[in-house]
Amino acid sequence: MISNAKIARINELAAKAKAGVITEEEKAEQQKLRQEYLK
């Protein structure tokens, strides 16, 4: 099960992506976390 901290990070990265200020490194982290969440 995914931790609350990881869910919070997913939401934080989603907000950054929506604002258009996300880095390529953060995009990769976001994809990794989303895949983990979906498992």
Rank of each mutant, 00 (worst) to 15 (best):
I10M: 15
A17E: 14
N11K: 15
K39G: 14
K39I: 12
I22Q: 03
G20Q: 04
T23G: 02
Q31F: 08
K16L: 11
S3F: 04
I7T: 05
E36S: 04
I2D: 08
N11V: 13
K6E: 04
E12A: 07
N4V: 13
A5H: 11
Q31Y: 12
A17L: 08
E26Q: 03
L13M: 01
K32D: 05
K6C: 08
N11R: 15
V21N: 11
A8G: 06
E25Y: 05
E25F: 05
K16V: 02
R34Y: 14
Q31A: 13
I7S: 06
A8I: 12
A17W: 07
E29Y: 03
K6W: 06
A8R: 14
R9C: 01
Q30S: 09
N11A: 13
Y37T: 06
E36F: 05
L38D: 13
S3V: 08
K32W: 11
T23W: 01
E12D: 05
E24R: 07
K16N: 02
A17P: 00
L33P: 00
G20Y: 02
Q35H: 11
L33R: 02
Q31R: 14
N4W: 07
I7R: 13
I2K: 06
E12T: 05
A5V: 10
E36M: 07
E24Y: 05
E29H: 01
K32P: 00
K27I: 12
I2T: 09
E36K: 05
L13W: 01
R9I: 02
V21F: 07
L13E: 01
M1P: 13
L13C: 01
A5M: 09
A8L: 12
Q30F: 15
I10K: 03
A28E: 14
N4S: 13
A15Q: 11
E26Y: 01
R34W: 15
N4M: 15
Q35A: 13
A8M: 14
E29K: 02
K18N: 07
I10G: 03
K6R: 09
A8T: 08
K39Y: 12
A5L: 10
E12F: 06
E25L: 11
I10C: 14
I22C: 00
N11S: 09
L33K: 01
I10S: 03
I10E: 02
G20H: 03
A28D: 11
A5K: 09
V21Y: 05
E26V: 00
L13P: 01
L13G: 00
Y37L: 13
Q35Y: 11
E36D: 08
Y37A: 08
A28C: 10
A17M: 10
M1W: 09
A14Q: 10
N4G: 14
K27Y: 11
K6P: 04
I2E: 10
K39Q: 14
E12M: 07
L38W: 12
E12C: 06
A15W: 10
K6I: 15
L38G: 08
K32Y: 11
Q30W: 15
A8P: 03
Q31S: 10
K27V: 11
A8K: 13
L33Q: 01
K18D: 09
M1D: 09
K39R: 11
Q31N: 11
Q35R: 15
I22T: 02
L38F: 11
Y37H: 05
T23F: 01
G20P: 00
E25I: 07
S3E: 09
R9M: 02
E36T: 04
K39E: 15
I7P: 03
I10R: 04
E12Q: 11
E12W: 04
E25G: 05
T23M: 03
A19H: 06
S3C: 14
M1I: 14
L33H: 03
A8C: 14
A8H: 11
A28H: 09
E36V: 04
G20I: 01
K27P: 00
A17K: 05
A15I: 09
E24V: 10
E12K: 04
A28R: 13
Q31L: 13
M1A: 12
Q31G: 05
Y37Q: 08
E26H: 00
Q35N: 07
A15E: 08
E12R: 04
L38H: 11
Q30R: 11
K6T: 13
Y37D: 06
E24S: 06
K39W: 14
A19Y: 08
E29W: 03
I10V: 05
L13H: 00
Q30I: 13
K39H: 14
A28M: 11
Q30E: 09
V21E: 07
R34E: 13
K27L: 11
I2Q: 07
I10L: 15
A28T: 10
I7V: 09
I2H: 08
Q30L: 15
L33N: 01
G20D: 03
R9E: 01
I10T: 03
L33S: 02
A15R: 13
T23L: 03
N4K: 15
E36P: 03
Y37G: 06
A19Q: 09
E24F: 05
Q31T: 12
Q30P: 00
S3A: 10
K16R: 12
A15P: 00
A15M: 12
N4R: 14
I22M: 07
S3G: 10
K18R: 13
T23Y: 01
A5T: 12
K39N: 15
S3T: 12
E12V: 06
L13K: 00
N4Y: 04
I22N: 01
I10D: 02
I7F: 05
S3H: 08
A14M: 12
N11P: 00
K32N: 06
V21G: 04
Q31C: 15
K18Q: 08
E26T: 00
K18T: 07
